[in-house]
Design a protein around this nucleic acid. Structure first.
Length: 500
RNA sequence: GCACCUGUUGUAUAGUGGUAGUAUACUGGCUUCCCAAGCCCGUGACCCGGGUUCGAAUCCCGGCAGGUGCACCA
């Protein structure tokens, strides 16, 4: 098999080495938009989650988990029922499909289209004698396409699989307010599956119908948003910002801007929101993306979601799919809590400051990561081929195996026994260690390179005499001779160092 | 969802109307070796369903999936 530094090699590696498989279920031909993770991919995911959780603890976040199925009223309140339904216009003859509202906006730029009923839109099409641009035939009736997956709970109660985790977190608001003792801003996150019935999912794991989200929420007062203590600690941090005004000028190179500068120049309105950009970037930087593949891109006002006052995407540049959104940071205002207050009859007005009479519904700032997109972009941007050697240059703490242990030869029992002992000692110290004795030593090194294993330990004849082994570094392929008694310490040190 | 192209072992590919080779991976053996060595043995595939045919993986139709373009992407 030829090993080249190209995307075909990468794509087959993803399957071959057990990172990502699909579409699932593969043995039945697969269902578009659904993928599974193999052992390597799952280990990577768990390692990402583990560093996120560790970091968020130090930022003062608590974690929650909610059901993935919620009754209809929740989505009525959140606005998803209304806004996640696309009006679809289908040509009677050739079957071409258009978004009715977008189509009308395009054809009738002077009309107000937003908020029109299906009947009104159908009327407009008739009045203006609009035809299918493909084949000049008439359109059928406008149909609805719901991006939410519908299900039944019990015998006749309609429910939906959540299209985002965020909404389910908001439903816990009054509990969180109490358990977090009104120490505003409340900081909460949730990791879990969300579901969207994409019309035609493509781009593999980047647009799935069932995917993992990792969403952070800040419940905060209006006053705090503008006057936020923690902003002071981070305001000098520089982020690669591409605001929408730059994009309008067809500029696509972000400008390294300090948050303070961004506020002063009115690129960002609220210090607390700026702080969210900082957290969003901070967690991503932990994962070890290469330089210059990460940027923040601001949504233009008409690109924003129905709940958002401001929105920036954290994007990673990939070879295969261009710039990919891996995180969205939204200023959701008080929209969600106001709506859920109204629909549930709860009073979500809270005194968040020192004056108990001054009550208001908290604002929500959201940092939403797509974990699957992080996994894909990390793998693609860390994938390297040098002189025919595939090397997955994952950060040490992210690699599925932190270390692999090999006996130089496998027909010398003293050597294999010592190797097995070292392997289990590492495992006993909670280090992901993997034992391998099959094939040649070189082949074993290459296998681990493909999995991104940063360290390989080889036990040879000399080890039996001097109680030393070699540690081989994945990227430099250099070997160090170290005492067996030091191995655990050395690996642990490097593991911790990689997390800082 | 539409149009075009595509679908052969785990991966990458060759191929013909008479059921398949190659590379690599994998299992076992020899070799005992520090960067994909060699030799031997072995396992393993024609996406699914229907049709045409004496006979289909090959031709036709439908489905499913992937790629590209259009549309869609909170």
């Amino acid at each position: 098999m030829k090993i080249e530094d190209n995307i075909e090699t990468f794509n087959s590696l993803i399957k071959r080495s057990g990172w990502i498989w699909g579409p699932s279920p593969e043995i039945y031909g697969g269902l578009a938009g659904f993928y599974s993770y193999g052992p390597a991919g799952m280990a990577l995911k768990n390692n990402i989650l583990s560093i996120f959780r560790k970091e968020l603890r130090s930022f003062g976040f608590g974690e929650v988990e909610c059901p993935t199925v919620m009754p209809e009223i929740v989505w009525e309140a959140s606005g998803h029922l209304e806004r996640f339904i696309d009006p679809i216009l289908k040509c009677k003859k050739c079957g071409s499909v258009y978004r009715a509202d977008k189509f009308l906006k395009d054809k009738l730029p002077d009309m107000m289209i937003d908020g029109l009923s299906f009947e009104k839109m159908e009327q407009l099409i008739k009045e203006n004698n609009l035809m299918c641009p493909e084949c000049e035939s008439d359109f059928g009736k406008i149909e609805e396409y719901n991006l939410m997956l519908k299900t039944k709970v019990g015998t006749d109660s309609t429910a939906f699989l959540r299209p985002e985790t965020a909404t389910t977190t908001y439903l816990l608001f009054n509990r969180l307010d109490q358990v977090m003792r009104r120490q505003y801003p409340l900081k909460v996150f949730q990791f879990g599956k969300a579901y969207r019935n994409e019309i035609s999912p493509r781009q593999g794991v980047l647009r799935m119908r069932s995917f993992d989200q990792f969403e952070l929420q800040l419940f905060i007062s209006k006053e705090q948003e503008m006057n936020f203590d923690e902003f002071e600690d981070v305001k000098e941090s520089k982020l690669p910002l591409l605001d929408w005004r730059l994009q309008e000028k067809n500029i696509d190179i972000p400008k390294l801007t300090s948050l303070e500068e961004a506020i002063d120049n009115k690129i960002l309105k609220k210090p607390a929101y700026a702080y969210c950009l900082y957290i969003g970037y901070y967690l991503i930087k932990k994962l070890g993306y290469p330089e210059n593949v990460v940027r923040f891109r601001q949504h233009s006002p008409n690109e924003r979601a129905h709940y958002a006052d401001d929105a920036w995407d954290l994007e990673v540049e990939t070879e295969q799919y261009g710039w990919v959104e891996i995180c969205g940071i939204h200023d959701r205002t008080d929209y969600d809590l106001r709506r859920h207050g109204e629909h549930s009859g709860q009073n979500f007005e809270i005194a968040m400051g020192s004056d108990p009479k001054n009550k208001e519904i908290p604002q929500i700032l959201e940092i939403a990561y797509g974990i699957d997109r992080i996994i894909y972009t990390l793998l693609e941007t860390n994938f390297n081929v040098e002189d025919g050697r595939i090397n997955m240059e994952l950060n040490t703490f992210l690699a599925p195996n932190t270390v692999a242990v090999f006996p130089l030869v496998r027909n010398k029992e003293e050597i294999t026994n010592l190797a097995k002992k070292i392997n289990s000692e590492l495992q006993d110290n909670l280090i992901s260690s993997f034992y391998d004795e099959s094939g040649s030593i070189g082949k074993r090194y290459r296998r681990q390179d493909e999995l991104g294993t940063p360290f390989c330990i080889t036990i040879d004849y000399d080890s039996l005499e001097d109680q030393e082994v070699t540690i081989r570094d994945r990227d430099s392929m250099e070997q160090d001779r170290v005492p067996i008694s030091e191995i655990t310490n050395i690996i642990q040190e490097r593991l911790i160092k990689s997390k800082l």
